[in-house]
Design a protein around this nucleic acid. Structure first.
Length: 872
RNA sequence: GCGGGCGUGGUGGAAUUGGUAGACACAAGGGACUUAAAAUCCCUCGGCGAUAGCCGUGCGGGUUCGAUUCCCGCCGCCCGCACCA
């Protein structure tokens, strides 16, 4: 066997079959060992895996295989986020049934994933588009409805005119649909909502407990929930106004600045605005203009603060006899607070811009600590920092915080319109989760609309509500709604003819609980709570940061909703979260400016200079910037081709090397070649080791010498470090450790032939450990080597090698010697040698005596077993 | 604008609580083997000097015996949010 190159194309399928036949990665719910649940975000079955998947699943697989070796009962499943629009688009473009298209894609991608040799329990595979899955989702929807977690309401919603469906707030990015990129319109529709806002405070507070999540994601969620504490304040309209309303309700976080109020402003969408606009044409025009500008404009920040006076005035709430004009202003949002504000120009930049434009008074009421009350004035920059309240009657002299409290207390005791004028209120930016989608390829919402009985949940015995197969997509819009018979049913309560809900659920509902379904994928109920509670929360969840809000926030809510309805017993679904970086690649452009795929580019180097030309035409190619792999820039590398050329292990190894996993990794041909060479190097090392062992058979293996002892130390250290790095998800460092160990073993193998047999024993043991360390990352190669070394069983089943703690510590230590902080030499001394002794040794060294040249040290700093610094 | 992160050789990146900066890898250069190539092996590889010297972790200060690490002030890049009252 030695001398031959390792052939991954031959060995990889072989081991995949062995693992399959041995059911190596099937996990049992009855296994008494401590469970460990590792999960990568399940893929959308687009038809082909991409390098991002390879990176994601390589990481998860290392974790899964490592904890298996550590003796944990590991759950590492895989499924398909299988509902969604691309299937419908394929149906429209190719006349294929969405189910057929999706199932074909799943088969193709499953074969690709299998070729990666992942340690996945395929017996638990689920696809969200199968009735066996979504029936439970429908059942939970009904439970959640009964628990008051679902509502149906008419509201302004985001309408995507290309995908012809409603989108949740979280799915609108910069005013555009997250999938289609179309500018989103506002429409009034009656929709189903999950009451996620009921959990705003809980979802916010629990973020502090998610210590194994990236800070970045927690901050993003915190901002998204957007808590602010303030005061609801009623302003009385001055009698004689042209409206039936008697008060305007305002939300503020700065009640301390109330004495500086100089106007009120309503949102263009405020009900009072609409009422007044009926008779006020200037206002009507202004509102229309605001709507034209919309929310899509990216220059909102720079947009001029504009408004129209309504003709109304309100009483100033704390200055007797004073009134404030009421405007409609373009910068006031209807969907935050009450849709109305009071403007305090001196201490809010927007209010100041507005006041300057319309010549409204600017009265400072917060005095900076170093300013003079007699001269302090606000010019073009509002003062928003700390200070003392002044110009403010009963609030004078207070700090901002004390003044907030005092103002709140004041308004709580005053009454307007028969209610307290001021009420402390907490506001959240988080809106309820609109889940209705006007599309076919999703889980049907299990509701029947009856003229007599109203909206009635489908009785559970009638679940699932199955999507019809015989649909046509010849008309735009919702194919379910166009189906000739599907929606016509009888009311389950009164029997009268009724209409099925034709909206389907947002696909983010599907992905909000799949991790729980994996724990009992064949159960008759959505979960088996005792089993789910044992596996959950997911110990390590791995995926892209693009789901920081959408999927991860929804899942956190849904888990709570499942708890409220008795399906699980926990709040947080993911204990550890890791967000991996993207896979990038150089981009290439032809002389005519077209993108050229890497497969058509021939790279050349002469010295440090790199150039490229077209592989066929020879035309020069410009090497462009490094970008995320994307079809549009054609800088994608197909995992299938990599697996076919180099094997899965090489691809996995490269994905784990060099770049820290949370950062982007650049795919390069040279890098893959390097990974492939390393694979061969391991194989040669194993071959050499076997040859050496055979030559020395019969000699005593356990005698020892210094070389062998040194090698053992290196090996144990590597085992210790690699384990720690995998647990900390520092795969790049684990890889570097393995390289170092390999280098040491190769060196040792080169020296061993003329050496005592003891060294062969140490070498052989070291190589076995190396193979075990390698096994989570290059599992096929590791099995091949394990077998060649004559080890019984699979390395996949071998326990993680124990570490002899005694071998992790040295009995001597090399101390750097600094003179005035600069390294001037080193000394090797027994560990723990008293400082006085170290000092004596150092000062007697020729080297040091020479450099000191007779100067007497002022001070000698000795950090035991660390460093010596001589100060002169 | 607000929030988060980052800045180290030609490149990706290492560096416990402040303690030998540049591990490991890639690229490059030189050499060995070979008829040749590939593969493999050996050597060099932060800069300037080239003797045992000096400088060096974005820039400028500071704290310290000692700073990539801590503090203050700048500059630059990336990501997220963005009229949130």
């Amino acid at each position: 066997m030695s001398g031959e190159r390792y052939n991954p194309r031959e060995m990889e399928p072989r081991w995949q079959k062995v693992w399959d036949d041995a059911k190596s990665f099937v996990s049992s719910n009855d296994d008494p060992r401590e469970p460990y649940y590792v999960l990568e975000m399940f893929p959308y079955p687009s038809g082909r895996i991409h390098m991002g998947h390879v990176r994601n699943y390589s990481m998860g697989d290392v974790v899964a295989r490592y904890y298996r070796a550590k003796g944990r009962n590991v759950l590492h499943p895989m499924g398909w986020d299988a509902f969604g629009l691309p299937a419908e688009n394929a149906a429209i473009e190719r006349g294929m049934n969405p189910a057929t298209w999706t199932r074909q894609n799943i088969e193709a991608m499953k074969a690709q994933l299998k070729s990666m040799g992942l340690a996945i329990d395929w017996t638990r595979e689920i696809a969200t588009c199968e009735p066996e899955y979504y029936r439970h989702q429908q059942s939970m929807f009904i439970d959640m409805m009964a628990a008051g977690l679902v509502t149906r309401k008419k509201s302004k919603v985001n309408w995507d005119p290309i995908d012809m469906t409603v989108l949740a707030n979280e799915q609108v990015i910069d005013g555009r649909g997250w999938r289609s990129g179309a500018i989103v319109e506002q429409r009034e529709l009656t929709q189903w909502f999950f009451k996620i806002s009921d959990y705003a405070e809980e979802l916010l507070e629990a973020l502090d407990g998610l210590t194994e999540w990236p800070e970045k994601v927690r901050v993003m969620q915190r901002n998204w929930i957007g808590k602010s504490e303030g005061l609801r304040l009623l302003f009385e309209l001055v009698p004689g106004n042209t409206t039936a309303a008697s008060v305007i309700d305002v939300f503020t976080t700065r009640p301390d600045t109330i004495f500086g109020a100089s106007f009120l402003a309503l949102s263009p969408d405020h009900p009072l605005t609409s009422e007044l606009a009926v008779v006020n044409t200037a206002l009507t025009e202004f509102v229309a203009e605001c709507h034209r500008q919309g929310t899509a404009t990216e220059t909102l920040e720079k947009a001029e603060k504009k408004g129209v006076f309504t003709g109304l005035h309100v009483k100033h709430p704390v200055i007797e006899g004073a009134t404030l004009p009421v405007y409609v202003a373009n910068f006031v949002l209807m969907d935050y607070g009450t849709g109305a504000i009071f403007g305090c120009p001196a201490h809010d930049q927007r209010d100041l811009d507005f006041a300057r434009k319309y010549d409204l008074p600017v009265t400072p009421v917060v005095l900076p600590d170093d300013a003079d009350a007699a001269t302090f004035a606000v010019a073009n920059d509002a003062y928003t920092d700390a200070g003392t309240i002044f110009n403010s009657g009963f609030l004078n002299g207070l700090s901002i915080n004390d003044a907030k409290k005092a103002a709140a207390a004041h308004f709580a005791t005053r009454s307007v319109d028969g209610q307290p004028q001021g009420k402390v209120e907490v506001n959240y930016r988080l809106r309820d989760w609109g889940l209705s989608r006007q599309r076919y390829w999703g889980a049907p919402i299990p509701i029947i609309h009856c003229e007599v009985c109203g909206t009635i949940p489908v009785p559970k015995k009638d679940l699932p509500v199955v999507l019809p197969d015989d649909v046509s997509f010849d008309k735009p819009g919702n194919a379910l709604d166009h189906h000739p018979t599907w929606k016509h049913v009888n009311c389950p309560q009164c029997g009268a003819s009724a209409r099925r809900e034709t909206d389907t659920m947002d696909t983010f509902v599907d992905s909000s609980w799949y991790f729980a379904r994996f724990t009992a994928p064949d159960a008759d109920t959505p979960t088996i709570p005792a089993i789910a509670n044992r596996w959950l929360p997911v110990d390590q969840y791995i995926g892209g940061v693009e789901h920081a809000i959408l999927h991860l926030l929804y899942s956190r809510f849904f888990t709570r909703a499942m708890k409220a309805t008795g399906h699980v017993g926990l709040d947080e679904p993911f204990k550890g979260l890791f967000t991996q970086g993207m896979v990038t690649h150089e981009t290439y452009k032809s002389p005519t400016g077209e993108w050229v795929p890497p497969t058509e580019v021939l790279l050349e180097t002469s010295g440090e200079l790199r150039s490229a030309r077209h592989i066929h035409s020879g035309a020069p190619i410009a090497i462009g910037s490094v970008e995320k792999m994307s079809k549009s820039k054609k800088n994608v590398v197909d995992p299938d081709e990599i697996v076919a050329t180099y094997g899965a292990d090489t691809a996995r190894w490269f994905m784990l090397s060099d770049s820290p996993p949370e950062r982007d990794v650049q795919w390069t041909e040279a890098g893959v070649e390097g990974a492939s060479r390393f694979q061969q190097r391991i194989w040669r090392l194993v071959g050499e080791t076997i040859a050496l062992t055979e030559q020395s058979s019969g000699t005593v293996r356990n005698s020892d010498d210094g070389e062998a002892a040194a090698l053992r130390k290196i090996v144990h250290r590597a085992v210790h470090n690699v384990g720690g790095d995998i647990e900390g998800l520092r795969f790049n460092r684990a890889v570097a450790q393995i390289y170092e160990l390999t280098n040491a073993l190769v060196r040792s193998a080169g020296l061993v032939s003329a050496a005592p047999a003891a060294r062969i024993g140490a070498l052989q043991e070291g190589v076995e450990r190396l193979i075990q360390l390698l096994a989570p990352m290059m599992p096929h190669l590791a099995e091949t080597c394990w077998e060649a070394l004559g080890k019984s069983g699979l390395v996949a089943d071998a326990p993680w090698p124990p570490v002899d703690a005694a071998l992790l510590v040295d009995d001597t230590v090399t101390l750097p010697i600094q003179i005035n902080g600069k390294r001037r030499g080193e000394i090797t001394v027994p560990k723990g040698l008293p400082s006085a002794e170290v000092e004596r040794l150092v000062l007697s060294m020729d080297e040091i005596v020479r450099i000191l040249a007779g100067q007497a040290p002022k001070k000698i700093v000795i950090v035991p077993d660390r460093i010596v610094n001589v100060v002169v």
